[in-house]
Nucleic acid binder design. Structure first.
Lengths: 229, 229
DNA sequence: CAGTGGTCTAGACCACTAC
DNA sequence: TAGTGGTCTAGACCACTGA
């Protein structure tokens, strides 16, 4: 029944019957109208508030929220999953992989001290043979000591790291940048060509696990999303 | 009390006490442990599920969700709000504004028929004098008949359109692209320089209101987000 | 089968708001 | 002061799962 109440309110908002700032029926009115208990109506309204569709104020009422921010859930998926979901073939080419001392700033990304040893890998992901993503990654050895022994032609570093160090948080950043010579060579572009770049650090209970920069040819990769009342 | 139960479970997951796939205490166990009613425990768990932190299965139990997808709420704010929030000065320069027949494909974006008349505007937004965003916009005259009479140096088209046609849905797309000559000239770039491009269509109860392309210098604009257990 | 979550009820007390 | 939402209770019936 709470879904029925929700649908009723959603429809009224979508259709313009109630518009931004309007007051919606009170809980008591909805209880009377639908013949359900107040807990049921309360749940319906509380969930609409969590979605951002309405705003509730104790003592005043429930109101249609100003949807002034276009918000949506942006999902960044594992590249293998993403390609497989399109029914295409995914191949990974390991360009570089090894261990070295952290350069200036790198240690900071992982919350480690400068000069500590860390793992790195550069992997090129192809979709049906076409370069789609260059994955530049730094890994905290404390969280994934066997990282360098893995064969990342069989599974992605993302999948491996999620297995050995459960994700509990992340920060990401999306920008457009010009390909440098190394990136251009890997992706089959000219240096300076526009790329969509996602950078991300991932945390687990045992600390910051990994930093990754995902470089995509601007013409071949878009992020999409939507939201709906 | 439901917040106490939530905090307890959240801590256990963050700290690694329960990890991906682990079964959490059942509702009945939490009821006994905290001395609260089942409805209270149920609410705590339901909300954690909505956040994506746990997965619940009728008949089986509640489990720590595999956070295999780095997801976050991406918020695209009105450019004026965004600049003002940084404590900076926002200026808008109207480059073009008028009415014309829809070109091939344009009408389709707005769900109209080819050849119908529509409004357009090209506005350059500056942050402390530096070009930050070129806003190329098409507007459905049926939804905002007075669009051309507005002074968009005083408020943004986004703010105006939200006022006259409440937002009930949107689709957006984020990509990296090379600036064309017009865009480069407006933004003070060289043609071919990388730009972060957001395209969006917005719907309201009265139909598709507007299509907009927001072009940002790649070096001067990033989207950021985070998520947390 | 026993245990799990999904949903709903008919109350209750409280804090807050607007008049 | 009357009406609002915020929270909680102690039950209930149901559908589903796994042994």
């Amino acid at each position: 029944m709470y879904l029925v109440v929700q649908a009723h309110l959603r429809d009224g908002i979508k259709s313009g019957h109630w518009t931004v700032g309007d007051r919606l029926p009170s809980e008591a009115e909805l209880v009377a109208q639908f013949g359900v208990s107040r807990m049921t109506v309360n749940r319906a309204l509380r969930e609409l508030e969590q979605e951002g569709l309405i705003r509730r104020q104790q003592g005043a009422g429930s109101f249609v929220a100003p949807l002034e921010r276009v918000a949506g859930t942006l999902v960044i998926r594992d590249i293998h999953e993403e390609i497989a979901a399109r029914g295409h073939r995914h191949e990974a080419e390991i360009l570089q992989m090894g261990e070295r001392r952290a350069r200036r700033g790198e240690a900071q990304l992982l919350g480690l001290e400068t000069g500590v040893r860390l793992f790195y890998s550069h992997i090129l992901h192809r979709e049906n043979g076409l370069p789609l993503q260059l994955e530049e990654r730094l890994v905290n050895p404390a969280c994934a000591p066997d990282y360098l022994a893995q064969d990342f032609k069989l599974f992605t570093p993302t999948a491996y790291l999620l297995q050995v160090a459960p994700l509990t948080g992340a920060q990401y950043q999306i920008e457009a940048a010009a390909a440098n010579t190394e990136q251009a060579a890997a992706l089959g572009l000219q240096p300076g060509d526009p790329c969509l770049v996602i950078e991300r650090v991932s945390r687990s209970p045992s600390g910051t696990v990994t930093w990754v920069r995902l470089v995509h040819p601007g013409a071949r990769h878009v992020l999409t999303g939507s939201f709906d009342a």
